[in-house]
Design a protein around this nucleic acid. Structure first.
Lengths: 146, 146
DNA sequence: TATTGTTATACTCTATAACTATA
DNA sequence: TATAGTTATAGAGTATAACAATA
């Protein structure tokens, strides 16, 4: 096998997909660990952020934004309601508007502090320019339509 | 709430961790879909690459490199052996050297063609300079020690 | 006819604890 | 004492199919 074979020497080294996965796992692990302090999981914190920005949205909206199946949204929303962080009020006969409770807003503020610390921890690995370039590039990969 | 709140307008837009996750999921989905043609899963293709580059390695080595628990390596290696893609030969009484079979080498070559197409599909979103910067940045996040 | 919420289910991936045999 | 392989098990996350109620 020729030594110029791009897979030979370090077969994973130039693979964007592999390192994207490892980086994502590393950040998710750090985020999850930090969120344990307020008994939230990463997806739950993300849902609280979305409800704050889109009060009155329905759980199917959130599922579409986050790429989560409707069926899998059910236990997540139920858990947040049971924990007293969100409230549901009937819109039509089939959908319920979602809002943060007072406790949900308080928890979200704590989550935001954690998110900032977590993001700063990783983003401080890079210069401002590197950071902007990195976010722009990753956006391009993750955006569905673009 | 002040409009300068970085979480308000598009609460996920500036979150590196969120977009890293979405990008990783997008690439993994594409990779997995392409690999179905040769009945491999992403992790299995990665293991074949590592065995080719490190013939005679043991499954615990692979687990350490990929961040997979020893217990979870067992069914993966067993499946690759059952599929006739790898062979095990006793080293000591407790560990087995791993090698690709002929069929395993053939399958790996097909996997490499798929990997190249998959990587090119995503890396063609960027210029050569952008690509290098992106890989360098992601390496920095995913590398354990650095 | 399409959408919302729901249940049930299954499959993958991951994490932990314990055991054995070997070094 | 530490390591390699293994088993069993439990917890997430994710995917599909089906159904009732509603739009």
């Amino acid at each position: 096998m020729p030594s110029s074979d791009p897979h030979s020497l370090h077969p994973l080294d130039n693979l964007l997909g592999y390192h994207l996965r490892r980086a994502s796992v590393a950040m998710m692990a750090d985020f999850g660990k930090r969120l344990q302090a307020i008994k939230l999981r990463p997806t739950e914190a993300t849902i609280l952020l979305l409800i704050e920005t889109n009060p009155g949205c329905i759980q199917s909206d959130i599922g579409r934004i986050l790429g989560i199946q409707r069926a899998n949204m059910v236990p997540m929303i139920a858990a947040l309601e049971k924990a007293g962080l969100i409230a549901r009020s009937a819109m039509d006969g089939r959908s319920h508007a979602l809002h943060l409770t007072e406790q949900g807003e308080e928890t979200l503020q704590a989550a935001k502090t954690i998110i900032d610390a977590h993001e700063n921890y990783f983003q401080s690995m890079f210069s401002a320019d590197e950071n902007k370039a990195l976010l722009t590039s990753i956006h391009r990969i993750s955006k569905p339509g673009d």
